[in-house]
Design a protein around this nucleic acid. Structure first.
Lengths: 341, 341
DNA sequence: CTGAAAGCGCTAACAG
DNA sequence: CTGTTAGCGCTTTCAG
């Protein structure tokens, strides 16, 4: 179990240095020697300790990942992609689940990430404060942000404003005018967050259609229960019910569906709904959604980050992933049915 | 950024050894000296590298976690609990997402886990083959299995047979007799898997009620789409529709609900459904379920594992977590409504 | 192509 | 209570 490279070297009748070269593939080693070393390593089940190696090379083969939720569709899917891509390249993924307001959050930035453990850090859906951004940069290792553009850090996102506009315009195109937006929680005056950007897209689309007077929105948690609560609030009063809802994510959208059912508002007959994400559950619920392929984002972002780890220069810029509208039953047949648009 | 303990020592005017003692709290250090060292460390933002320390102490402050799914309710919830508990204790969580049949699976056992990186390994919902179990034991570090009893490894599970019986008996108690079980995929002849145990609980309950003749079940993926497919198969033919379904997890249960709705089978009026898990979505969907509190399992299991890491002897035995039936609308009002039980 | 030696950052004896 | 020394497991000069 506790076999070291010295054991391999001895078994193969070579020095530690040669064993190291043979196993890592770096430096000249006679083919015959190499085979003997590899064979010896296999026999005793030797695997080099990246911790010890990292001490001298500076590379740990470990990537730190910071994420606000694990058990949400978008984040879970992105994590699966990231993990798969890292594993393929021989990297470990160390995961920190930090919550917006929590006290642990500071410890992650000041302590855990500062332990010289990582070759790079992936911030998924994190909207770091300026102080946090500075601490990230101070780590002196490649960084990448996904799902939220961060000034000074290369970021991969979708065009949230555009995606929200796309969703809203789809509803407008079907003839709806009383469209409510149900979005994520927004800290006061913070228009730069994902939630703020999606709200802005909604407002832009409505405004372009000369419907400033119809602007209405509810803010809630990005979850099914959150969507249920906000949906209930929005639909409760029959006298001023929206004919359509643009939800900031699929979970909210499905929560709204459930709320609607409880209130005997039929989807899609009485209410059209659009979400954002493209989770497999969206298909189950026949939800029209703006698909952003989180899993693919995960794969892609790892390739970028590891390129930077290998020394390639990384541009500090925002890259936007394309999205597309996937139309399903929750809106497609709604126009003809809705009592009043 | 690249500050070492030598820098701290120099700044505080002490030796590396004293600095180390002051920061780790191990060994005698004068209070005044300690404060000077701590101050110096804070000034330059020094955090000790657990990798370097681990080389000498043998402890890495890192726990390896192996899990078959990230984006499933039960597993996501357990992961959140595990991560939180580890963070509280200063440990990192390195995550491997391995799939039952995949080729990567071997690499995780032979390569990633063998890299001497972890103080312990947590296997969540993994049903390792005998060969895999042996490789785990050969690591020579504390191991813990959650969600699946593994011979030779301390395991924390629920009583799956009992939970399934509990769910089935709830339906039987309401007067239903045409109860179908929709469970997870079972490899042939493997009665020891979670899926096999839940099926067994169903069969036991039905048999005790003298309903061997009514035994019916569908096997599918433990997901909403899986539940939808299996539910559609089970409900398609009106001439032999079940009056109740016991689903092996909440996701399947909700998939069945959706399938029912598509087929104009009303829940709970025409069909009663019970799941297992107790996810927040179960409440949303008014699903009666056997609650197993995955998050609490995660917290608890970390305490156990870290105790073993700290040298406490760990018993090799199976511990069962209690479960309870949470009755909700999907069954509670079903008895009086169902056309035929 | 191979070996000897140095050293990555840290902690653990062991003297003082 | 504190400093000196050795060494964890590995890679990398630098000679040969």
């Amino acid at each position: 179990m506790g076999s070291a490279i010295a054991d391999v070297a001895m078994r193969a009748g070579v020095s530690k240095a040669t064993a190291s070269r043979a196993l890592s593939g770096k430096g000249y080693v006679a083919e015959a020697t190499r085979q003997r070393v590899v064979q010896a390593a296999k026999e005793i089940g030797f695997v080099a300790s990246p911790n010890a190696a990292g001490l001298v090379t500076g590379h740990t083969k470990n990537i730190g990942v910071v994420i606000p939720f694990i058990n949400r569709w978008f984040f879970g899917a992105i994590l699966e992609g990231v993990e798969e891509a890292l594993l393929n390249r021989g990297y470990d993924m160390t995961l920190y689940n930090i919550h917006p307001g929590s006290a642990d959050r500071d410890r992650v930035f000041d302590f855990f990430l500062a332990r010289k453990r990582f070759d790079g850090v992936l911030a998924i859906g994190i909207e770091p404060t300026p102080a946090e951004t500075e601490r990230l940069l101070r780590l002196g290792i490649p960084l990448l942000s996904v799902g939220a553009p961060v000034a000074g850090i290369r970021s991969l996102t979708i065009d949230d404003v555009g995606a929200a506009r796309l969703a809203t315009e789809h509803l407008l195109g079907l003839g709806f005018r009383r469209i409510t937006h149900i979005g994520g929680p927004r800290t006061e005056g913070d228009d730069s967050s994902v939630h703020g950007r999606r709200l802005r897209g909604y407002i832009e689309a409505m405004t372009r259609a000369d419907l400033e007077g119809e602007l209405r929105f509810e803010l809630t948690a990005m979850s099914v229960p959150g969507g249920y609560d906000a949906g209930t609030r929005a639909l409760r009063d029959p006298s001023c019910r929206p004919s359509a809802v643009f939800a900031a994510c699929d979970e909210i959208a499905i929560g709204v569906m459930i709320a609607a059912r409880r209130l005997d508002v039929r989807v899609p007959n009485d209410l059209a709904i659009v979400g954002i994400d493209g989770h497999e559950h969206a298909e189950m619920f026949s939800l029209t959604t703006v698909e952003q392929q989180p899993r693919a984002q995960g794969l892609s972002v790892v390739a970028d980050l590891l390129a930077a780890v290998s020394g390639e220069q990384m541009a500090t810029e925002v890259v936007e992933m394309p999205v597309r509208l996937v139309v399903r039953e929750s809106t497609v047949s709604a126009r003809v049915n809705a009592a009043a648009v």
